[in-house]
């Protein structure tokens, strides 16, 4: 275990985590992703976030094997202390989306009723579609309940999932995969489903499906998309809070 200690030991409360390795690894794999994305002329599988995630897990897996410990143990002791520091910055980064939202306050004032109605009705339709798709793919009730609240931000989706008979860890995983997918595939999906003709709809969709990462993508597409994705992040979380528990109850999931 001494070599593992070299990477920081969060498991021993007296030593505490050493954060340098986690921060270094996160930056290194993300920059490798950016480099690959650049030299492949923007191939979607080389999106920096996706490369960073896969490469990061692979490197941790290799090192865990090298030191003869399990992957979760090595993750907890070596990566998590640094990862948690970076993770914290998602808090201020989330509230930063109030700024692109306020910049297009004209659109918010004009369409607030359409926005709120679209998110509520769209969410209910999505819940039905997701329910029947998961049922069709043969998932059990526990897994289906874990799939329903994934449009909300992780901090809301996890407790709702637990309260409706789902597995919070699966829901958290779904939220992460949502964000990674939307960041990688947004351009393709927008083209295929012709979402660009309606910037308000595209923005709300990106914020709902991709959380804050989807909003960052939407900001790149345009100021209206960015503002709409920002408002979607807040409103859809509240909608999930209100709509998912009765829906799960109605479908007999708990």
């Amino acid at each position: 275990m001494t070599w593992v200690n070299f990477f920081g030991n969060a498991l021993d409360p007296k030593v505490g985590g050493i954060a340098f390795f986690g921060i270094f690894l996160s930056l290194a794999v993300f920059l490798i992703g950016q480099y690959l994305f650049k030299i492949s002329n923007g191939f979607f599988l080389f999106q920096p976030l996706f490369v960073g995630m896969v490469l990061g897990i692979f490197i941790l897996w290799l090192l865990a094997k090298w030191f003869g410990v399990s992957l979760p143990t090595f993750y907890m002791s070596a990566y998590k202390p640094g990862g948690d520091i970076l993770f914290w910055f998602l808090n201020p980064a989330t509230i930063a989306f109030a700024i692109p939202l306020y910049r297009r306050n004209d659109v918010v004032k004009k369409f607030w009723l359409e926005i709120v109605l679209s998110l509520i009705v769209g969410m209910v339709i999505s819940l039905f579609v997701i329910y029947y798709v998961s049922k069709g793919l043969g998932l059990n009730n526990k897994m289906i309940a874990s799939m329903l609240p994934q449009a909300a931000t992780t901090a809301i989706a996890m407790p709702i999932s637990g309260a409706t008979g789902g597995i919070p860890a699966v829901t958290a995983m779904a939220c992460i995969i949502n964000a990674v997918l939307i960041y990688a595939l947004a351009d393709v999906l927008i083209k295929v489903f012709r979402l660009n003709s309606d910037p308000v709809g595209a923005g709300l969709g990106l914020g709902t499906a991709g959380h804050t990462v989807g909003s960052a993508k939407a900001v790149q597409l345009g100021s209206i998309q960015g503002a709409m994705a920002s408002i979607a992040v807040v409103v859809i979380s509240i909608v999930v809070d209100i709509v998912v528990p009765p829906f799960a109850h109605m479908m007999g999931l708990f």
């Binding site: 897990i57 990566y79 640094g82 993770f87 201020p92 995983m173 990674v180």
Partner: peptide
Amino acid sequence: VEKMADFLISLIAFLFVPSGIQMANSLNVF
């Protein structure tokens, strides 16, 4: 607040890397 906000938003994809790598901890759910 503008400058700080634009900076943080430009970092979002990177800040999500720890969440992605966090899946190493719970790959067993699959």
